[in-house]
Simulated scan of single mutants.
Amino acid sequence: MSCFMYDVMGGTVDEPDPETMRRVLAGLADADDEHPDVSLTHESGWCLGAFRGGLLVRENPDDDSVAPGRMREAAREEVLRLFGLLAAGDITSVEALPWQR
């Protein structure tokens, strides 16, 4: 499966491994109003965006029939776990969580 990440400054990382995901997520310490998040996008179009305050957003910008979901105060380890599931293409496990609409 193919995926890529955007770091907090908008740089792209193709096929990130778990350590790279951890490093990109740690970059949220440098987030500001112009660059507030990091994200991981799977080739299916599904995306997870993580923000410094713990907000995690799940969406598929290619599919208007699916409303974005939000998870507040997501712990860093949980975000890394979900990034790993999405990178592996396990969309079902990511979708099964209690996302707020």
Rank of each mutant, 00 (worst) to 15 (best):
M1T: 00
M1A: 04
S2H: 05
C3L: 05
M5V: 09
M5C: 14
M5H: 12
Y6S: 14
Y6E: 15
D7Y: 06
D7C: 06
V8H: 03
V8S: 12
V8D: 12
M9C: 12
M9F: 12
G10N: 07
T12W: 09
T12A: 13
T12M: 12
V13N: 01
D14G: 05
D14A: 15
E15N: 14
E15M: 12
E15F: 02
D17P: 12
E19D: 08
M21K: 01
R22A: 15
R23V: 15
V24K: 01
V24Q: 01
G27Q: 02
L28K: 08
A29M: 00
A29N: 04
A29G: 06
D30C: 02
D32Y: 10
H35F: 09
H35R: 09
H35T: 13
P36F: 03
P36L: 04
P36N: 01
D37K: 07
V38R: 10
V38H: 11
S39L: 13
L40V: 11
L40R: 02
T41N: 11
T41P: 13
T41E: 15
H42P: 11
E43C: 13
S44I: 03
S44L: 12
G45K: 04
W46S: 03
W46F: 07
W46G: 03
C47H: 04
A50H: 06
A50C: 12
A50M: 14
F51M: 08
F51A: 10
G53E: 08
G54H: 05
L55G: 04
L55Y: 05
L56Y: 13
R58K: 06
E59A: 15
E59H: 14
N60E: 10
D63N: 10
S65T: 12
S65V: 03
V66C: 04
V66F: 03
V66R: 14
A67H: 04
A67W: 03
P68Y: 08
R70I: 07
M71Q: 06
M71G: 12
E73K: 13
A74G: 11
A74H: 06
A75P: 09
A75Y: 05
R76A: 07
E77N: 13
E77H: 10
E78M: 03
E78P: 11
E78Y: 01
E78K: 07
V79T: 08
L80E: 00
L80H: 00
R81K: 02
L82Y: 01
F83V: 00
F83W: 00
F83A: 00
G84S: 07
G84R: 01
L85F: 00
L86S: 02
L86H: 02
A87L: 13
A87W: 09
A88M: 11
A88T: 14
G89E: 14
D90G: 06
D90E: 13
D90A: 13
T92P: 01
S93E: 02
E95A: 07
A96C: 07
A96G: 09
L97E: 15
P98R: 01
P98K: 02
R101H: 10
R101M: 10
R101E: 12
